Simulated assay, not measured.
Amino acid sequence: MKLYENVVIGNFLYGLGYSIGISSSERNQLSVINLLQQTPADKELGDMLLEFPGVVRLIEFKNSASSLKKEKKRCDQLTVAIGENDAFKKISREIHWYVETKPFEELCLNNIKPYLDAFSKIPSAHTIESLITEITNSVISPKSTISPIELEAYLALVSKCQGSGSVGTGGLIVSVSKKGIRYVQFADIMELRLQHKDYVMKVEKEFNSIMDKKLEKELKKERALDKEKTLNKGMTL
């Protein structure tokens, strides 16, 4: 039997959404769910980039029956790029995960480890269920001490050692509350906006559907200002 990666990913997202939903039913929950599999950003980062206020997870899904040569090479490249940088090692083992499944008729063996340890002989750190529980607990009670700047620097390192260093993929912020589900778009998933408290407060205050013209106009202005700042930095350099 072959358990395709997209089947695992789909059920993982369903389970994660349900788990977080029942655990945070009394408050608004902001999230960014980036399924990057088979997109240009897949080669730069991985299959999935999850973001919640105070929490980031980059996850690569694999079926053990598939060829793992390319993934081993990517893991080796990242290991070399990190080198003896203990700060990046800590960040990597907290946010960057490898999920490999090997199905049988009655059970599914999991190889779920920090990405740096993906092909080591250390035992699996999780099952799919316990990984979902760990992420849910982190979302409900964030305890990470990694700064937004450090998170963005790590993702940039991953992107550079696995690809061109330019992701260029937009995303959607999802707000789930008793009022329903609402979305707003943003320009670059590498910005990790939900790690910045001021931005989260602004979104929670002003959040509305992307069909809301007023909010859309404000976001366009903000993107224009960000672009202008980037151009000014480039000219300064």
Score class of each variant (00 low, 15 high):
E150T: 02
K113G: 02
V167N: 01
K160F: 12
S120L: 07
E152Y: 06
P123I: 00
V174D: 09
P142W: 08
A118G: 01
I181S: 12
N111M: 08
S141N: 14
I128V: 15
I189F: 08
A118H: 02
L151K: 10
I135S: 03
G171E: 03
G165H: 04
I149Q: 14
L109M: 14
E106K: 11
K179R: 09
N110S: 08
T133K: 11
A153K: 12
E152W: 06
P148S: 09
N137V: 07
I112Y: 00
S166E: 13
V174I: 11
Y183W: 13
M190R: 04
V176M: 10
H126R: 08
S120K: 03
A187F: 12
L116I: 11
L131A: 06
K160Y: 12
S175D: 14
L155K: 00
Y183I: 07
N111Y: 13
S130E: 06
D188C: 09
P123H: 04
P123E: 05
D188K: 06
V139Q: 02
P148W: 00
Q162D: 15
P114M: 06
E152L: 03
N111V: 10
I189W: 01
K113H: 11
S147G: 05
F119I: 13
G168Q: 10
K178L: 14
D188E: 11
K121I: 12
D117V: 02
N137S: 10
S164K: 06
L172M: 14
V139R: 00
R182H: 10
V184I: 09
P142D: 11
K143P: 10
F186D: 04
N110Q: 05
E106M: 11
S141P: 03
S130V: 03
S130G: 08
I112L: 04
S177K: 01
S120N: 06
S175C: 13
V158R: 00
K160P: 03
I149T: 12
T136C: 07
I128K: 14
L155I: 01
S159E: 06
L131S: 01
K160L: 11
F186E: 06
L157W: 00
T145L: 11
V176L: 10
P142G: 12
K143F: 04
K160R: 13
A187M: 08
S138P: 03
S144V: 09
S166M: 09
I181F: 11
I132N: 02
G170W: 01
V139F: 02
A153F: 02
E129I: 10
T145C: 11
A156V: 02
I132A: 05
